[in-house]
């Protein structure tokens, strides 16, 4: 529903590219976070030479919150180095750490080369339909994105302990509602924690291990259950979905009730993973 709040494009962002070629996906947690995450996206895009999707939603676009204006001098800097030296230049050589190729600006003498969407030989960069090479290149593209996990913060717990009975895992604009709900539920004495995922592709490298430290994982989302499927597929955790696809954001009470073990009001959404146990 255009202009309404929804998180239904996560699959499209993470899996929507042609030809088994992954990319990086980030999601801001709040209106203020949009500023920082945009900078982070450019850092990753230029360092790893990959498209990066910043997945916002209608709720964030329409919301407002106080935001401390940063000073330009304090903003992170990550200048791109352009290759100019023809000595030993090869457009398809990858950086050992990032697997990215050199940045070369058209106009640089003696570095002329052609790039394009057809499969290339891993070494020479010439168009190649060799079967083994295609497998190797497909893996290289996946490894490049997977390697970003080593360059992003570890997943932390926003509220509560890093192990226990229940983790409520969210992403994007549901941060506020989930956070408040977990706070209320904790005040009531429930053993529950809030984990908010900003890096959706690749996931932070400790995420799977962290989730396995909880008896239950609950994933509220404004879609029909997308992050929950990614987590289940990636980590084989028995995460439960909690969907709301009405075009309206979660209410804190929806989530509190679900944490307590009750069913949400029928008109406000239905659980994907059955009743909370």
């Amino acid at each position: 529903m255009p202009t309404k709040a929804e998180q239904s494009d996560l699959f499209q962002a993470v899996h929507g590219r042609n030809a088994d070629a992954p990319l990086a996906v980030l999601a801001p947690a709040s209106t203020a976070d949009c500023f920082d995450i945009a900078i982070e996206a450019v850092r990753l895009a230029t360092k790893y030479m990959t498209p990066v999707i910043v997945l916002s939603d209608g709720y964030l676009a329409h919301a407002a919150e106080p935001w401390r204006i940063p000073r330009e001098a304090d903003l992170p800097r990550f200048p791109v180095t352009y290759r100019t030296d023809p000595e030993g230049f090869h457009p398809f050589l990858r950086d050992a750490e990032t697997l990215a190729r050199p940045w070369v600006r058209p106009g640089t003498p003696q570095l002329e080369h052609r790039i394009g969407g057809l499969e290339r030989d891993y070494d020479s960069g010439h168009i190649s339909y060799d079967p083994d090479n295609h497998a190797r290149m497909t893996k290289a593209r996946a490894d490049k994105i997977a390697g970003i996990a080593n360059d992003i913060p570890l997943q932390h717990v926003s509220l509560g302990d890093d192990r226990g009975k229940l983790a409520v895992v969210g992403w994007g604009s549901t941060f506020g509602a989930i956070h408040q709900a977990v706070k209320i539920a904790r005040d009531e004495g429930n053993d529950v924690a809030h984990i908010h995922v900003r890096y959706l592709s690749p996931f932070p490298r400790n995420l799977g291990e962290l989730l396995k430290r909880y008896d239950r994982v609950l994933v509220p989302e404004m879609n029909n259950g997308q992050l929950v499927k990614l987590l289940r597929a990636e980590y084989l955790v028995d995460a439960e979905g909690f969907s709301k696809v009405t075009g309206k954001p979660f209410r804190v009470t929806d989530i509190v009730q679900r944490i307590r073990g009750g069913a949400p009001p029928p008109s406000e959404g239905s659980g994907l993973g059955g009743e909370a146990g």
């Binding site: 058209p106 106009g107 640089t108 570095l111 002329e112 052609r114 790039i115 394009g116 168009i127």
Partner: peptide
Amino acid sequence: ERTVFVSGIGCAARFPYYMSTYGFHT
């Protein structure tokens, strides 16, 4: 080095590969 050939998709779009300039098959 100051010349760039840019193409989309199709038979014609193979063109940049055959030039010794900068090229983008996009």
